[in-house]
């Protein structure tokens, strides 16, 4: 029983996938909030259309069979219904498309001046993070590799295939620029609760902006098949206060 309590206490505050999870993880950024809201908006129309189509289908099957109507009607035209069934779906599509594009382009936006740049470099099969804002020469001072913790080394409460030895530490409530690239094959840097999925392409650097709204630990996985150990290069983001971030940077060896 005590073991269960430990598990609950250690896992509960983590933003990671749960067994048999169907919905989204809790949003940690405005972007993810937008994605969740859009999903719910679209689902409203989805249910509406589903119920309407099913009603029509079942009604037709119920009422029109060969015993009740031995001679079928042969109506091939109907101007009113044809106009209606063209206009109405296009209006519904507009209601889906407008918020969808608004979200898509706002996610792409690179207008806000970020406070920190973090580079995430994918390797087969680990990740390297570089914080180079505080460098005074081309020598990298704050760089570390992030490896997954293997099953044998897991401690109680740590998630299998999700925990890493060195987490990405970043301040909460701050505009951050993630520069994502790869050193060998394509990888992907993805954290579901941040609403971020950014492909890491060798020779190209992709930018994605995040602003984590609450302190916490967020888990993600490589989302671009990159070889044998594709499953063993997760991402763990630890959002802390700006003060703690400052002391983490200063105490980094």
């Amino acid at each position: 029983m005590i073991v269960h309590e430990w598990l609950f206490l250690t896992i509960a505050p983590c933003d990671a996938a749960e067994p048999w999870q169907l919905g989204f993880q809790d949003a940690a950024t405005p972007m993810m909030q937008g994605i969740t809201d859009l999903h719910h908006d679209i689902f409203f129309f989805l249910i509406l259309i589903l119920v309407f189509v099913l009603w029509m289908l079942v009604r037709a099957l119920w009422h029109f069979d060969y015993k009740k109507h031995p001679i079928p009607q042969r109506i091939v035209h109907g101007t009113t219904i044809e106009i209606l069934r063209t206009i109405l779906p296009s209006i519904i599509l507009m209601f889906i498309a407008i918020p969808s594009f608004a979200l898509l382009y706002s996610m792409d936006e690179v207008v806000v001046d970020p406070a920190i740049t973090i580079k995430a470099i994918g390797h087969q099969w680990y990740r390297t993070y570089e914080y180079s804002d505080y460098n005074s020469s081309d020598e990298q001072s704050l760089t570390f590799d992030s490896y997954m913790i293997t099953e044998d080394d897991l401690e109680l409460g740590q998630s299998r295939l999700l925990e890493v030895d060195n987490r990405v530490v970043l301040p909460a409530n701050t505009h951050l620029r993630m520069i994502v690239t790869s050193a060998d094959v394509p990888h992907s840097w993805a954290v579901p609760s941040s609403g971020v999925k950014c492909h890491a392409v060798p020779g190209r650097s992709n930018q994605t902006s995040i602003s984590v709204q609450r302190e916490g630990v967020y888990y993600g996985q490589c989302s671009r098949f990159c070889g044998t150990n594709h499953a063993s290069m997760p991402i763990v983001v630890e959002a802390v206060s700006m003060k703690d971030y400052g002391s983490w940077v200063q105490n980094f060896e």
Binding site: V111, A115, I116, R204, S205, M242, G246
Partner: peptide, 25 residues
Amino acid sequence: MAEIEIKTAPADFRFPTANQTRHCF
């Protein structure tokens, strides 16, 4: 190490998209 300064490269209107390869170069 002295108190760190939170400052990074600003957003550049020449590179408004996700592809920042040229920005760095």
